[in-house]
Each structure stands twice: as structure tokens, then as C-alpha cells.
């Protein structure tokens, strides 16, 4: 399978601080790859490097087989970008934003007219075509930003935290659209710290922390490889929880905040120990990506 993005040994320094430290990664054509990582992991920096928007200090990047940053202009012509922060043009309406952006790609007027109509329908903003940007909700701005990223009919779509700060309705709508784009054969590279988003959209995940790549695999394999299949979340006084589960076999106990997590292959006996106790509350669930994420990147707070 040919790779749309190939990164080898990428290094990026700001002053003397190394923020990307030898990341290698490839994105196969037609796949969705998610980049997970806590704040400051180097996700956004990696995306900027990929677009030729930032000089690299080491390593090699090829997008569509073209070298970056030398071929940045040609690569950006075939790529759509949804940035982390909205930067729609506030001097223009919804439809004008798409038109002006189309001009930057040199798209001829007749092609642009038809594409704007399609894109507004795709993100359900047809009836807001003439609204000024300032009157849009956060979700609408996000949808318009996605439409804007599609104006050049890109082969590769790069999305930096596409649903951060949105309500669940808006988030589900955007997930639906991104799955449509996947089905159309577009290649997607997404950064996120919503595990649910990563799990729903991506074929493959890479976990980045402090500028290093820690692991890469499909969501299901990551879960299988890193954590036990079942989890019991227990809340109660630390002494009480440890007394109840301390001696029980096949229970890897982790604490985070006021909650204890018991990772196990079979929770049946553990639940018997916890049932009927008034001083503890618990929840039994299958392991998920968040468990993997916390295990790999650690539980301490990141700023």
C-alpha cells in the first residue's frame, strides 16, 4: 500500500528545547490515522512540519512522495487543513469565506461556484450562506472550517483536534461527515485527545508523548496489548478499597483522583467482594483506549 505521508526520524527544536524527538510515522492512502497525546506531546508541531510551515531540525518528510519543505506549495495544493483554532475570515460571510479561500488555490470561478454549493450542503450550512462569521455558533464555525478545508478537493485531510469544545450533537455530526470523507477514499490524519473520537474514526493510532512515538496500532490491538480486558472503577475511602480488593488475585489496582481502577481478566469474583457494600460504589466496564492512554503516557497532570 502506498503511503501518503512518510516521516522518518523527525526532530524539531525551539531554542534548545526538543519538542519532536525522532518521530517516524507513515499514513497509508485511504486510511485514517489518529495521533493521540497529552498537551505538549508535539502533535500540532508535527502537523506544521508536515505542511512545510516550519523548518525541521532533523529527519525527513515526504508527502505524496514529494520532499518537505521544498515541495510545500505543491503538497498544500493537494491537502486540506482544519486548524485547532478557528481562523475563518471575519470580514466575509459563510459562502464568501469558501470563495476567497478557493481563490488562494487558484480554483476557476465556475468550478468554485458548484463546489461551494456542494460543500455548504455537505456541512448543512446552505441556509446560512450569507451570514457573517460573527453570527455562527462554535459548531457551525467548525463545520465551515471543514468545508473550507475541502474547497480544493484534497487527497489528504489534516485535522487538528476537530471537535474540541463542541457539544455532543455537533461532535456526532462532524464524526459522521469525517466517516463520509473516509468512505470517499480520502486519507485522514487527525490529532485528538478524545479517545472516543480516535476509536470511532481511526483505523490506526499513534501515541505521542514528549515528542516521542510510544506505540502505534489499531485501537482494538492497542487495548488488547496494553491492558486487561475488564475494568472495575471503585470509589470510596482509600483504606476501604485496598482492604476490599488488596488480596484478590488478578487485580492490577491503579489510583487516579478519587477513583481506583482494578484491571482484570475476569471480574466475576471481584464483583462479589464489592457487592452489597454501602461504603463503596463501583462500575464494571470493558477496557477502552483511555485506559491504554493513561497506562502508556502516565497519570500525572500535563500542562
Amino acid at each position: 500500500m502506498d503511503a501518503v505521508v512518510e516521516i522518518e526520524g523527525l526532530i524539531k527544536r525551539y531554542d534548545s528545547r526538543e519538542v519532536v524527538r525522532g518521530v517516524s510515522l507513515s499514513v497509508p492512502r485511504g486510511r485514517c490515522v489518529g495521533v493521540l497525546g497529552p498537551n505538549g506531546a508535539g502533535k500540532t508541531t508535527t502537523l506544521r512540519l508536515l505542511l512545510g510551515q516550519s523548518p525541521l531540525n532533523g529527519g525527513r518528510i515526504r508527502v505524496f512522495g514529494l520532499p518537505i519543505p521544498e515541495a510545500g506549495r505543491a503538497v498544500r495544493a493537494r491537502t486540506g487543513v482544519v486548524p485547532q483554532m478557528d481562523n475563518l475570515d471575519p470580514d466575509f460571510t459563510v459562502a464568501e469565506n469558501l470563495r476567497i479561500y478557493g481563490h488562494y488555490f487558484g480554483i476557476p470561478a465556475h468550478t468554485l461556484d458548484a463546489r461551494i454549493r456542494e460543500l455548504l450542503a455537505f456541512v448543512e450550512l446552505t441556509d446560512r450562506a450569507d451570514s457573517p462569521i460573527g453570527t455562527l455558533s462554535g459548531g457551525m464555525k467548525r463545520r465551515l472550517t471543514i468545508a473550507r478545508a475541502l474547497v480544493n478537493d484534497p487527497e489528504l485531510l489534516i485535522l487538528d483536534e476537530p471537535t474540541t469544545g463542541l457539544d455532543p450533537q455537533a461532535r456526532h455530526m462532524i464524526w459522521g461527515r469525517l466517516r463520509d470523507l473516509r468512505a470517499q477514499g480520502k486519507t485522514l490524519l487527525i490529532t485528538t485527545h478524545y479517545m472516543e473520537e480516535a476509536e470511532r474514526l481511526c483505523d490506526e493510532l499513534v501515541i505521542l508523548d514528549q515528542g516521542r512515538l510510544l506505540d502505534r496500532d489499531s485501537p482494538a490491538s492497542l487495548i488488547r496489548r496494553h491492558v486487561e480486558p475488564e475494568v472495575i472503577e471503585v470509589r470510596g475511602a482509600a483504606g476501604t478499597v485496598r482492604a476490599a480488593l488488596g488480596g484478590v488475585p488478578d487485580c492490577r489496582l491503579e489510583a487516579m483522583g478519587d477513583t481506583f481502577y482494578c484491571y482484570t481478566h475476569d471480574a466475576t469474583t471481584h464483583i462479589k467482594h464489592l457487592e452489597g457494600r454501602a461504603d463503596l460504589t463501583f462500575l464494571h466496564r470493558p477496557a477502552n483506549l483511555e485506559d491504554v492512554f493513561l497506562k502508556i503516557t502516565g497519570r500525572e497532570l500535563r500542562d
Partner: peptide
């Protein structure tokens, strides 16, 4: 403040 150039720099414009 308006970040207009930031948006433009993700297109072929330099």
C-alpha cells in the same frame, strides 16, 4: 489578532 495569514499559509500561498 485575526489569524488570516495563518489560514492562508495552509494553502499554496507563501
Amino acid at each position: 489578532p485575526q489569524r488570516t495569514y495563518e489560514a492562508i499559509l495552509t494553502t499554496p500561498m507563501e
